[in-house]
Amino acid sequence: MKAPSDRLYTKTHEWIRIEGDEGVVGITDFAQDNLTDVTFVELPEIGRRVAARDQVCVIESVKAAADVYSPVAGTISAVNPELESHPELINSDPYGRGWIFRLALEQPAATEGLLSAEEYGALITEK
């Protein structure tokens, strides 16, 4: 499964792309594949402060539900409005239009413990 190299990953299958002092967060192709057809995304509240690995929201599919965690500490600065009417974007474009929320980063460099695309790829394929 592909994992773009322009971002960082968590062991719980989120990705974050750092853009200056902000980060864009979504779930990986592996995560959406295990969820199957997404029917609802419970979007987080803008302005909420989260620590790294805090549970931020729940994604529901036809037969499953998965919790989403924040890869780093920050404050939710935006959510993807398109997911309200098109939650299936999580399945069809997990690394693009299926982004979930933006974070104003607490410390722009606090990315220790996150995985590179290569490390994440190894995590989900080496069996």
Binding site: K11, H13, F30, D33, N34, L35, T36, K63, A64, L123, I124, K127
Partner: peptide
């Protein structure tokens, strides 16, 4: 742990 399973496309379902 899902990441330790030899899952094919279609995942756990």
């Amino acid at each position: 742990r899902l990441s330790t399973l030899p899952l094919a496309r279609g995942g756990l379902l």
